[in-house]
Design a protein around this nucleic acid. Structure first.
Lengths: 170, 170
DNA sequence: TGTCGATTGACAGTATACTGACGATCTAGG
DNA sequence: CCTAGATCGTCAGTATACTGTCAATCGACA
């Protein structure tokens, strides 16, 4: 008896696979972002980190990783690069010698203001080929799926939860 | 006169941005793939490369990169790793000394057969939180968007176009 | 108070990705 | 035949990502 007949192995199956489409779309999105923002020498990750530090001054690296759902290991080098560009500062916390608090510098706040229009353009361009109704539908479904799959990633998004210990007490 | 008033900078704007959602979803997808396939020690990229080499035996690295829309520079190390695992072979082409042709080995074909059920499970799991109708809608919109944005990425998908010179003459 | 478990930042190792460059090689034109 | 331009594989440099580990530190509990 032959074993269960195998489905044919085709590239079309790969092209239609969710994982493949997600990876392709991410590559395209990064490419568009970098093109629109090339005057600023900021990556998407660095941009998100700047926004989070702007929104939560004095956050530490571990909590930052939860707020933007980045890997903590990776975040170390991201922070280093932002610091090397003088967009952020790190200050040791008085109460806990392990922690280094993150703050935007003046030039960090300035570049954040300046880059936002370019980021907006990039976001618009990513969806531009679709009809407006389809853009909304896609974003709605994707937002749902990301939220419902939150725990499936190594670094689940914790957003404001992660900030309970920041100056407000737990 | 103050300049145009700035929109507030919030994390919610980041969370709702297409680029952010695409990156999150890709992280989640890779995480699920690796979890389902951990017994096989194959990454999503390595899997796609194996399928393409299976479908197009004797393809070279440059055409492979077009068929799966991978960066050619990156593909070099991917090929090296697959070769180190003895899943593929590289043979110099007789007619062109620059080119190395890629072939699946027996163990490469075997692992491809064995991993497919795990890959299928991963693809299903990625969309599982959505209702069936929503899964179809999301995949349809995403496939359209990726296709319409094809030229926006550094390595546009060329699929069968790239194979015109493979044994069939141009 | 002294110790144990948890947390924090850092690091090593692996794997994608993209940019830019390079030598070897092929092809087309003269 | 010989040179100019294109192509192929490769490499160096940078930037995300994830796994696993480590020392320093903190907090809680005995």
């Amino acid at each position: 008896m032959p074993s269960k007949p195998l489905p044919p192995i085709t590239m079309d199956a790969v092209y239609a696979a969710p994982g493949y489409l997600f990876r392709r779309m991410q590559q395209i999105a990064v490419s568009i972002f970098m093109e629109e923002c090339k005057a600023f020498d900021l990556t998407p990750v660095q941009y998100a980190a700047l926004v989070a530090i702007h929104t939560h001054p004095g956050i530490d690296a571990t909590r930052l990783s939860a707020v933007i759902a980045f890997d903590r290991s990776t975040l170390g080098s991201v922070i280093e690069r932002l610091q090397a560009k003088a967009y952020i500062e790190r200050k040791p916390a008085a109460e806990d010698k392990r922690i280094k608090l993150l703050y935007l510098t003046k030039s960090g706040a300035a570049i954040l203001r300046e880059i936002i229009p370019a980021v907006e353009r990039a976001q618009v361009r990513m969806l531009e080929p679709l009809k407006p109704a389809d853009r909304k539908a896609l974003m709605s479904l994707l937002a749902q799926l990301v939220d419902l799959n939150n725990e499936a990633s190594r670094v689940p998004l914790r957003a404001e939860d992660a900030l309970e210990h920041l100056g407000k007490g737990g």
